[in-house]
Design a protein around this nucleic acid. Structure first.
Length: 599
RNA sequence: UGGGGAGUCGCCAAGUUGGUUAAGGCACUGGGUUUUGAUCCCAGCAUCCGAAGGUUCGAGUCCUUCCUCCUCAGCCA
């Protein structure tokens, strides 16, 4: 059984090369970060200078904002950042980028740490937790802001948000300086302190970096770096009424943590000049020391047949198109886990898709293939009849129960075999019998022979039908000398091989068959006939889940939540984490087996 | 239309300073094995690197022009 044991990627082979690895290798070779010091905790230049040479060759970080659930896209970043640290003798920090109190909560913090651990990563190293919160750096950030003001690199603006927007200019026109841009250092300092002390209403004043309102890069047109916002913070409570903006906070977080390679997605490329500008100004002020962290950007993951935008995910949950954040059809990591997808599969997936700066779309089937590949190795085999129909072996003694032996894993004989009871009346798949076979069909047909997997070869003798002409019972006779595993069992050659469960012993069970949540590769893409953007909800697959009552082999009754199995000839299934109770598990279909037979 | 990025096989993706027949994976197509129409094995799969010119003995790699796509005008991250 491949239960939900936490995987360990320690011994993973080095993944394919990519441009970020190339940078890291070059930096290590040239000793760029060789003389960095680390005092055992984040801190400014003076703090780190008193430390020891950093035992970590590189430091990376995974910095989610705790305002939502992690999804498959985050997995790419997680494997990238933690993987780099693992492969190059570094450390990857788990950091919560919690600078906007309004959207963040402890619930999200917990679910995020859960998901990262589930993927197999931890952040403790050298006796240090390496779990950090940006909000713990608010004191330093405040000090850095004052230093900027003192050196003439920041000013307090009294313009309204609307005025700021207008004066920022456009993509093709330069912006205009704020009338407040030339306040004196003393005035700026006094005003900023008043902001901190709660003397000004939310939105009335804002601290801006003083760079260049005519810069072709809009991010350099005096970006806002500190706003007044009276809100309770999940970590700092009501201590602050001013909060730093991402653009200001993030470089500082990286620097305080001695991060060497700060990796983010492409949309932050334009932000990099400010990242460097800020850190240089702070280094000049003596607050930070070289070498400073560097930012690198890679293309975010785009997956067909799913949506990964936070807004859309929230909408799906709130409007109850799915059962919750952990709905098995959702691309959230919590959903993926309930679906039965496994961490090793994510590892394979991220290795397989690579890391580059080219925008790309990965087909969902690539993701499914990765899961199949690891599940094939890890999951024990079991027998399940999903769409049951009776098969009666007319020449088999009534009341007789015979042991048949089924290997738990064809690739791992050491896992042994288990007993499955054979009786006169069995359940078989409805689709394994065809009264009028189509071309190429080689399962049960009238007069046809087929092997009952791990049992006898049987010959079909006919079937019964109800008033509507639907087959209700199939009849057959078995060939006594053909039992699997006995000498001469191969004397009768048959091509078909079907699975079955003793009707008397079967475990009748709820099974959920999941399919894609969306029926279109790019949900919501394109426009309607009257020129409006299409609503992604229109592309929802109405048949994304089918709940059935299946007949399972009796041993499945003992499955524990999160145990994964291959139901032979069907696919991979997992005992649901939430709805299974002891002795009565329910199963979710993770992914089907490949089926090369085109009907 | 300004700035910043990206364009290599159906989908991803290597390709450091220009040097021989353009890695690898996935998919796909043949063939083999198989008591899962699964797995596994073996073979095949870009005279060509967005386009057009140019430099060179030699260019995916250098130069020029052009085309396409992504991204930036939150007191979100």
């Amino acid at each position: 059984m491949s239960s939900a044991k936490t995987p360990n990627h320690q011994s993973a082979p080095v993944a394919a090369s990519n441009f970020i690895r190339a940078v890291v290798e070059k930096d290590i070779e040239q000793g760029v970060y060789k003389n960095r010091k680390w005092a055992g905790s984040p801190g400014d230049a003076a703090h780190q200078a008193a430390g020891q040479p950093d035992p970590a060759k590189i430091r990376t970080r995974f910095p989610p904002e705790p305002n939502g659930y992690l999804h498959i896209g985050h997995a790419k970043s997680i494997f990238l950042n933690f993987g780099l640290a693992r492969d190059y003798n570094g450390v990857c920090h788990m950091r919560f980028d919690d600078t906007n109190p309004e959207k963040e909560s402890q619930e999200y913090v917990d679910s995020i740490t859960d998901s990262v651990k589930w993927l197999g990563f931890g952040w403790e190293k050298n006796g240090e937790s390496n779990l950090y919160f940006a909000s713990n750096y608010f004191d330093f950030m405040y000090r850095a802001a004052e230093a900027l003001i003192e050196n003439g690199h920041a000013y307090v603006d009294s313009q309204t948000a609307e005025e700021m927007r207008i004066n920022r200019g456009t993509l093709t026109e330069a912006g205009k300086n704020s009338p407040w841009r030339d306040r004196t250092v003393a005035e700026n300092l006094a005003l900023f302190r008043e902001m901190r002390d709660g003397k000004h209403a939310d939105g009335s004043l804002i601290l801006r970096a003083k760079i260049d309102m005519a810069s072709p890069n809009i991010n350099l047109r005096d970006p806002a770096i500190y706003r007044v916002r009276r809100a309770h913070h999940h970590n700092t409570g009501d201590k602050w009424c001013i909060y730093p903006m991402y653009t200001f906070a993030h470089p500082i977080e990286d620097a305080l943590e001695q991060v060497t390679h700060s990796i983010c997605t492409l949309e932050f490329e334009d932000q990099r000049p400010f990242y460097d500008w800020l850190l240089e100004r702070l280094a000049e002020a003596g607050l930070l020391a070289h070498p400073l962290p560097k930012q690198y950007e890679f293309a975010r993951l785009n997956l067909t047949y799913v949506v990964l935008s936070k807004r859309k995910l929230i909408q799906l949950v709130e409007e109850k198109h799915v059962s919750g954040w952990d709905d098995p059809r959702l691309p959230t990591l919590a959903g993926a886990r309930r679906r039965g997808y496994v961490a090793e599969g994510f590892k394979l997936f991220t290795d397989r898709i690579g890391v580059s700066k080219a925008d790309s779309w990965i087909d969902y089937s690539t993701f499914e293939d990765c899961m199949r590949e690891v599940l094939n190795i890890n999951a024990e085999r079991r027998i399940a009849v999903l769409d049951p129909i009776k098969l009666v072996i007319d020449n088999y003694p009534e009341g007789q129960v015979e042991d048949c032996f089924a290997p738990n894993h064809p690739l791992k004989p050491e896992l042994g075999k288990r007993v499955v009871p054979l009786t006169r009346e069995l359940w078989i798949e409805r689709e394994d019998f065809m009264e009028v076979p189509s071309k190429g069909y080689f399962r049960l047909t009238p007069e046809g022979m087929v092997r009952l997997r791990y049992g006898y070869v049987v010959k079909c003798t006919g079937c019964e039908k109800d008033a509507n002409g639907n087959v209700t019972v199939v009849h057959c006779e078995y060939l006594p000398d053909t039992k699997s595993g006995t000498p001469g069992s191969d004397s009768v050659k048959v091509k078909g091989n079907i699975h079955w469960v003793s009707a008397q012993h079967a475990y009748e069970c709820e099974v959920r068959l999941y399919d894609r949540l969306f029926k279109e590769a790019h949900p919501g893409e394109g426009q309607t006939e009257d020129g409006h953007d299409r609503d992604f909800l229109n592309d929802l697959n109405p048949n994304s889940v089918t709940v059935i009552t299946a007949q399972l082999e009796p041993s499945l009754k003992d499955a524990k939540p999160e145990d994964s199995f291959q139901f032979e000839r069907h696919g991979y299934f997992v005992a649901d984490k939430k709805d299974s109770v002891a002795g009565k598990p329910v199963f979710n279909r993770t992914v089907t087996l490949k089926d090369a037979w085109q009907k």
